[in-house]
Design a protein around this nucleic acid. Structure first.
Lengths: 194, 194
DNA sequence: CAGCCGCCGTAGACGGTGTCTACCTTCCCG
DNA sequence: CGGGAAGGTAGACACCGTCTACGGCGGCTG
């Protein structure tokens, strides 16, 4: 992006991303990141006044990564909106499962929520992709596109979280989330075409 | 329950519940709880070998509270399953909004997920209530009841979390979650009757 | 009734954390 | 060439969770 890739700032974020992916969100301490970046524990403070600022920068990378994955997936999928939404949803759930620590961090609002950080806005591009597809897949009797898209996102997100947490496998007895995903898409977009 | 209400164990949990409701999950340290309970910082260790054990006990209270609220709400609602599901959903969302810190703690699987703690099972009674209503509201062409109930729970949960996080208000431009809730129920259970 | 044992809470230590502050090096620009 | 700012170092502080040694108290046993 606009960051000097070789600068300490970028190295700190990269170390943090690596750490959260490998060890989970609780392992992401300022001092550990500084250690991995090979600098003293006070160094990050030049670029990130507080721990929250660094975590937010890491989470931002997570959103960028997820958004990029979705766009990459959609490049190879045919133009039917329903098909594309299915692919988007699958990517979302796979991301949450494969990068659980990062996914958790991205939505830990108690860690990240700060007026000045504007982290929430980071998810808007991804939502825009989803909302666009929803608008095209929407049936005339459905709720307004923004509402429908919001509800669908929430459903995806809830599956991702409750599945990772173990509640959904336990409650439904399922061993994978395919049926849940199908039911969700059918519910919001109407039964799948044959 | 089976705990001596005047015992230190119960006092610690009560102090923790109070703290998480008032200050949020990050304020719930062992030492602070001990301070509020008027005992030394080492005392909780008799009953909760580790911080996670205490947090789990607090989260359990949260699930019990939520379940009780749902049951209390349902006592005054007429028998139509759709109406009852609406009331249940409303209670779920209101709980998440009113007790954000507790709601977050309840689903912090990185803190609570531990084979021996069996915390996930605590949400099963609530899911059973929902699943029962879903089974009765289900249309013949819908997904199996367990799947439908799981998808609906996930949708509710996602709305609760993304709304609290601020993403959904931002993305949809809505000022309350009523439209999202209605769209969700319509999607999973079919259009509302007049 | 005496004595002992086990439960329960105390208190201090240890290594870790985030944050603050004083310092020092290095490099660029006038 | 000399001064000043940028950027990293290092130590202090308060707080955290965990571990361990200790004390006091009550109840059971002989």
């Amino acid at each position: 992006m606009d960051a000097d890739e070789t600068g300490l700032r970028a190295r700190l974020v990269a170390a943090g991303v690596d750490l959260v992916l490998r060890e989970g969100q609780s392992a992401v301490s300022l001092r550990e990141i500084a250690r991995r970046a090979g600098v003293s524990h006070g160094a990050p403070r030049r670029y990130f006044p507080t721990h929250v600022d660094l975590l937010s920068a890491i989470a931002r990378e997570g959103f960028a990564d997820l958004t990029a994955r979705v766009e990459r997936t959609l490049r190879d999928v045919d133009p039917d909106p329903r098909t594309r939404l299915t692919a988007l949803a699958r990517t979302y759930l796979d991301f949450a499962a494969a990068h659980r620590g990062m996914f958790e961090l991205m939505f830990r609002h108690d860690l990240l929520d700060s007026g000045r950080l504007r982290l929430r806005e980071t998810s808007l591009p991804l939502f825009a992709v989803l909302a666009d597809l929803v608008a095209r897949a929407r049936r005339p009797t459905d709720a307004p596109a923004a509402v429908l898209a919001g509800a669908l996102w929430a459903n995806l997100h809830g599956i991702a979280q409750l599945w990772a947490w173990g509640s959904l496998p336990l409650a439904t007895g399922a061993t994978d989330d395919d049926a849940l995903l199908r039911a969700t898409l059918d519910a919001h977009l109407g039964p799948a075409p044959a």
